[in-house]
Amino acid sequence: MPPVTTTEAGYVSIVQLTDSHLFADHSARLLGLDTFASLNAVIDQVLDEVDQMDLVLATGDITQDGSEGGYQRFIEAIGRLPAACRWIPGNHDDAALMATLGDASGLNADWIDLANWRIVLLDSSIPGAVPGRLDAEQLDHLDAALASAGERHVLVCLHHHPIDIESDWMNPLGLQNADEFLQRVDSNANIRGLLWGHIHQQLDAMRGKVRLLATPSTCIQFDAHSADFATDTQSPGYRWLRLHTDGSIETEVSRLPAGRFVPDPDASGY
C-alpha cells in the first residue's frame, strides 16, 4: 500500500468507499448482488472522475463474512487506486483480523495529517453486535487526537451513525453512546466534519458548524426513512471530498448509472 503523501494542491482530496460487504467465496452474493463486481465498477468510476487523490477512506463493513479472503479481495481492488487507503471496521467485520492484516498492508492508522487537516479514524464496532459504540479506549484516542491537533482542522470518521436518520429500523443500530461522542464534537472548534457509512444511503446535514456526511454503499442501498428493512433501487456509489485550507468541505456523491447492481427484491440474507 503506498504511503500517504503531503498534498500539493490547495485542498486535500479524499475518496470514501464504504460498506463493500465482500465475501471470500467468489460465487457468493448479497441479496443477489455481486459485491466484488460492484466495488470494482465503483473504483472504475473513481478512476474516471477523480484527477487528484490524496487518500482513500474505507469506512467499515469491508466484508460481509469477516474472512481473510474477503479482505484480500478488497486489498486487491483498492490496489488499482493511485492513493493510500486507510480502513476502519464495521459491524460485519472482524476488527482483530483487520488490525493484523492492516499492519501488514499499511491500512491501519489512528489519524492522518495532510496539509492543515487531521483525519481521525475511530473503531465503533462491537464484536458480535450490529449497533456501534465508542469504548473508553476509542474515546481516549479521540481526545488525544483532538488535544494534539494544534491549529489543524479535523475530520472524524467512524462506521456507525451518531445522529437520528429518521429510519425506525436503522436508528437503534447506530452509535449507542452518541451523546458522549457528540459532546466532544460540540465542544471542539477544530472539528469540521463527521464522516460515516453503515446506513447505505446519502446524507448531508449540519450540526452547528460541523458537516455531517454519510455515503452510499458500493453494493446494495437501503431505502431512506423506511420503518422496516427495505432496499432501494439507486445504484452503488462513492463520495469525494475536498478539504480546503480554510476549513470548508466541498463534497458530492457519485453513483454508477441507474439500473446497475440493483439487489434482487425477492432475495434475503442481509
Rank of each mutant, 00 (worst) to 15 (best):
S254P: 00
D186C: 01
L33W: 00
S217V: 04
W87H: 08
A147I: 00
G69S: 10
L213K: 03
A224T: 14
M53V: 01
A147R: 11
P2M: 06
N91V: 00
S254F: 10
G247C: 02
V262S: 09
D123C: 11
L182Y: 08
G60F: 13
L182C: 12
E68V: 15
P127R: 11
T215Y: 08
Q176I: 15
L256K: 03
G193A: 15
A149R: 13
I112L: 06
A28R: 13
T218A: 10
T18D: 00
L134Q: 05
T7R: 07
D143T: 08
A24Q: 14
A129F: 06
I112P: 13
L175A: 13
T233R: 15
A96Q: 14
A37F: 09
R255K: 07
L194K: 10
W240F: 12
L107G: 13
M98Q: 15
G70T: 07
S254E: 06
E252M: 03
L243T: 11
G247L: 02
C157S: 15
G259D: 05
V154Y: 12
S125T: 10
N177S: 05
N108Y: 02
H92Q: 06
D232C: 08
V15L: 00
F222M: 10
M98L: 15
R211L: 05
T63G: 10
A230E: 08
L57E: 11
G247S: 04
R260V: 09
D34Y: 09
K209A: 14
Y238S: 05
Y11V: 00
G259N: 05
H26E: 14
E8Y: 07
N171F: 11
L121Q: 12
E252G: 03
D25G: 05
I165T: 14
M98R: 07
A24L: 03
R73H: 07
D94M: 03
T18S: 12
A144L: 09
L30H: 04
V154H: 05
F222I: 12
L213W: 07
L155Q: 06
H200C: 04
K209L: 05
P263Y: 06
Y11N: 04
I165W: 10
D34P: 07
A77L: 01
I126T: 11
H200G: 03
L55C: 04
I78N: 00
L121P: 09
Q234E: 12
D93N: 05
D65L: 13
